[in-house]
């Protein structure tokens, strides 16, 4: 008597409500760029939540049980992969029991497998930095061509999970992709005069972006990934910027700009604040974020 009652209680407490075909798909993404693209393509067929807020450093995000609850109730989980979400996803996936949204499950989509990663380390050695990514640099979302790959994969993923809405996803994706291609032509034109130009970055988040537009990373303020710069390293970076006439330093908003104040003496060097993922209700979606970033960058490169 007690055992069946206990089982019923456990089932009532832990069971996720069964999804019906007319209900929106519950999608959880890690970063806002993925959430924005999913909303654009999924339309009213999806309800999207994300874990990393716009402008937040993904390394600082806590793995919380509320995230576990959201994952356990989700129909689809979309992540960057390549250790981008190292701070929280492995711990959550280890505890998560719902196979449908775990790696290998029908609802799980890891986008890192779509691309050929850059900067895969030859050897894994903490001497190379504290913030190392063994599978390669994970900031591939900053290349708009990769953004198009991401959008296509999300379209297919949603269509697999909700085949009766395939035509809607296809239509939404076409509209999104046409806009992406048109913007990309503009961006290529905007940055074409600066091909080969050197830039500095605080953290090495930009290899895919820089490669797309033929820009060159001359150095990073972090001496090694995840390490704070010493005064000596800052002096070396300032000297490099002076000697090479570098005009742009890309810095994510979560890094303390006071740390680069030593570089303010470099003539012509402009600090461009740019998050590696920043789609938000205020800033707009993925394409809007890239558009603003590229225009800011072009302006900074144009200044003499």
């Amino acid at each position: 008597m007690v055992k069946p009652a206990l089982s019923l209680l456990l089932a009532a407490l832990t069971a996720a409500p069964a999804a019906r075909a007319q209900d929106p798909l519950k999608v959880v993404t890690t970063i806002t760029d993925l959430a924005a693209i999913t909303r654009s393509i999924g339309g009213d067929a999806v309800e999207v939540e994300h874990f990393v807020r716009a402008g937040d450093d993904p390394h600082q995000v806590l793995a919380k049980p509320s995230m576990l609850l959201k994952l356990s109730r989700a129909d689809a989980v979309i992540v960057m992969g390549l250790n981008y979400e190292h701070a929280f996803m492995p711990a959550l996936l280890q505890k998560l029991r719902q196979k449908r949204v775990k790696p290998g499950g029908p609802g799980y989509l890891e986008l890192g497998s779509l691309i050929t990663p850059l900067e895969v380390p030859d050897k894994l050695d903490r001497g190379q930095g504290a913030d190392l990514h063994p599978f390669g640099n994970p900031h591939f979302n900053l290349d708009p061509e990769n953004g198009r790959l991401i959008a296509r994969a999300i379209r297919d993923h949603l269509a697999t999970l909700r085949p009766e809405r395939r035509a809607d996803f296809e239509r939404n994706w076409k509209a999104w992709d046409e806009r992406a291609r048109a913007l990309e032509k503009e961006w290529q034109k905007l940055l074409a005069p600066y091909r080969g130009a050197e830039v500095l970055a605080y953290h090495n988040s930009w290899p895919y972006f820089l490669q797309r537009y033929g820009l060159v990373l001359a150095g990073t303020v972090e001496p090694k990934p995840g390490m704070a710069p010493s005064a000596r390293h800052l002096a070396e970076i300032a000297s490099l910027a002076r000697e090479h006439g570098i005009r742009v330093l890309l810095i994510e908003p979560w890094y303390d700009a006071r740390r680069v104040s030593a570089l303010s003496s470099v003539p012509g060097l402009k600090v461009v604040s740019a998050a590696a993922t920043a789609s938000s209700a205020e800033a707009g979606g993925y394409l809007e974020h890239l558009d603003r970033l590229i225009r800011d960058l072009a302006d900074a490169l144009a200044e003499r």
């Binding site: 402008g55 937040d56 450093d57 600082q60 806590l62 908003p253 979560w254």
Partner: peptide, 11 residues
């Protein structure tokens, strides 16, 4: 109580 401002990297 733990609050983390991941945009400023303070907690």
């Amino acid at each position: 109580l733990r609050t983390v401002d991941a945009s400023a990297r303070t907690a």
